[in-house]
């Protein structure tokens, strides 16, 4: 009986610690997200698309940058070394564009405005861990997040389309965090 009590207390403590650990991690995550959203504090101009308030805010700054980038690209063609559109990556079970993703999308947008005139399909992909059914919807949200961002960067919406493959087309067939990180992505396929 006493052993049981001790065991129970130990379990309780462990549980409490773990819960605490979880909460902490969540907090950190939240903090990461907040600066990302807060960075472009510049007055938001318009909010065309419906879903993500956060995203619209983030979009605000880059929108102003785009013309700049365009000028730059026009004056210095060498800047675009890569002719291909780069893929972007996401956090687990998330369709929020990370800072890295937004940087890449900005470059992609340059390419799309300057070099590539064809239509582009944005493919949303997930890692193998989530449910395949749910991931089909999540992948689509990832694709749409990128599409909305590109639209705010000045790409005409009618040049972009989205499709989700959920976890059906992994880039890396591995079963570790490195593979999963690679697989949580949007790809940009030029359809001509």
């Amino acid at each position: 009986m006493r052993d049981g009590m001790v065991g129970f207390l130990v379990v309780l403590c462990c549980g409490a610690l773990l819960v605490g650990g979880c909460a902490k991690k969540e907090m950190v995550k939240g903090e990461e997200a907040i600066p990302a959203a807060a960075a472009p504090v510049k007055p938001a101009e318009q909010a065309p698309a419906k879903p993500e308030v956060k995203q619209e805010k983030m979009a605000a700054e880059p929108v102003k940058e785009v013309p700049l980038a365009k000028e730059e690209a026009a004056t210095a063609p060498s800047a675009a070394q890569e002719e291909t559109l780069q893929r972007i990556h996401f956090d687990f079970d998330s369709y929020v564009l990370t800072k890295d993703a937004r940087d890449i999308l900005t470059k992609d947008a340059e390419l799309l405005l300057k070099k590539i005139t064809a239509k582009v399909t944005i493919e949303g992909h997930c890692d193998e861990r989530g449910s395949d059914e749910y991931n089909l919807a999540l992948g689509e949200k990832r694709a749409k997040a990128a599409m909305n961002y590109l639209v705010t960067l000045g790409i005409p919406a009618d040049r972009l389309s989205v499709i989700s493959y959920g976890k059906e087309k992994p880039l890396d067939p591995g079963h570790d965090e490195a593979a999963w990180a690679k697989n949580r992505r949007d790809e940009f396929v030029v359809t001509k």
């Binding site: 419906k50 879903p51 449910s131 059914e133 749910y134 089909l136 999540l138």
Partner: peptide, 12 residues
């Protein structure tokens, strides 16, 4: 009919 009206993912 449309059964759900959320901004979230509803599936399955």
């Amino acid at each position: 009919a449309r059964l759900t009206h959320s901004n979230a993912i509803d599936v399955s």
